[in-house]
Design a protein around this nucleic acid. Structure first.
Lengths: 223, 223
DNA sequence: CGCGCCTGTAACCTGTTTGTCACCCGCCCG
DNA sequence: CGGGCGGGTGACAAACAGGTTACAGGCGCG
């Protein structure tokens, strides 16, 4: 699990780095804005901790640059009392912030919370209602029926829907999350995948009870 | 977009409620732990704001109960300086916390950030008077009637009008926003779309009470 | 090599949504 | 009075989206 720490204060950088390393994270460091962006692109970390005040590019600008190509969790560091800053940071797409000074323990708790939320820890919800997913075995169990084997894509699709159980997930989002690319044209793929998945998990595939078509997307029905 | 606010301090509850309602969120309130859990189960809100100190069940216990059945964003309210509290809250699965006292603006920014992160971003909070739009489900609810399904264009039109609720929006602006292009001639399209929308949302489509014709455009009437 | 299985593509069918047209009415104005 | 104008309505066709079937290429595996 890679974490990029960007701060111009070397001592603080080391403190954060030490804390995270102790907990088993792989830590990358950057001392100014431009090198933060560069390291981000080279290493594609799983989380970024960003100070706002940095030479070269401000934390805001770095955050903006990151958000242009990725939704990984970003935590901003602010000085107490600068409410403007944190409102701006959150509007730019930062996921959380810490006010200096902070304790290592707090930092760790927040970092873990962010990663958990981003679904990077396998704390991902693997069950909702009667649907239980087994990522290891590539199977899904509906109610108390026999587990059904799923293909890689089917698993990813179901995982996405499960993560948003009960809520509609737009076709675009599914396309992006399952295939990771081309947000545009490939409706057909999704159409097919849904069809195939329904054959496997629906009692009556012609009248879906679980995987329902909803406005502009699909949703997993759970009671 | 439903938000459940649980706090035993009635004034604070009202302040938060007011702030969120102003921004178009549908707000549910609870004054103690048990009723917070009950309302959560009855209403399945999209986000929960939880005070830690509450009679009946503490915010921690409520958070735990919620996490047993759902991953929706939970924001905890803490008093300044209780670092133990917030570490514990985050470990229990809370997604964010706010330290009292906080400004309404901060609250709003954090709530929006949480919802965006939860992937409900395209569900911009849209409601005014008795009209509540659900962008995710492509539906609109008038008062407490059944939600009505809307097509893509109907949704866009209503969204425009809702964003300017009570004020006239010119036909040209509507044309531009809904269809995005083409200059003249397309009055007919708008005429039709309004007609179709009225059939869906007006009690008596022949005598529109909500979607009124105004000079050079249309307006949404809200009380 | 042949055999499955998984994935992507295409074609067809269906119901829904959107665009177009023709016509209505009430209103203003010469 | 009659004609033009701006909306409102109904009917219909074109375009579209989702479900389905069929099939071909790719890949691992015996």
């Amino acid at each position: 699990m890679k974490v990029l720490v960007a701060d111009d204060d070397g001592d603080l950088r080391d403190l954060i780095g030490f804390t995270l390393t102790q907990s088993g994270y792989l830590v990358l460091k950057a001392g100014d804005g431009p090198s933060a962006v560069r390291r981000f692109e080279e290493e594609s970390p799983d989380l970024v901790v960003l100070d706002i005040n940095m030479p070269g590019l401000s934390g805001f600008q770095v955050c903006e640059a990151i958000r242009k190509r990725s939704r990984i969790p970003v935590m901003m560091l602010t000085v107490r009392g600068e409410e403007e800053d944190l409102v701006r940071a959150l509007e730019l797409g930062a996921d959380d912030y810490l006010t200096k000074p902070f304790s290592p323990r707090t930092l760790l708790a927040r970092v873990k919370a962010l990663l958990r939320r981003a679904g990077m820890e396998n704390t991902a919800p693997l069950a909702a209602g009667r649907v239980a997913l087994d990522l290891q075995e590539h199977t899904v169990s509906i109610g108390r029926a026999e587990p059904v084997r799923l293909t890689k894509l089917e698993l990813r699709l179901l995982q996405m829907l499960l993560a948003n159980a009960g809520h509609t997930v737009s076709s675009d989002r599914l396309l992006a999350q399952v295939w990771g690319h081309r947000s545009g044209g490939d409706r057909q793929l999704l159409k097919q995948l849904v069809h195939r998945l329904r054959q496997k998990i629906e009692a009556d595939p012609a009248a879906p009870a679980l995987l329902r078509t909803a406005a502009a997307g699909y949703k997993l029905l759970v009671e």
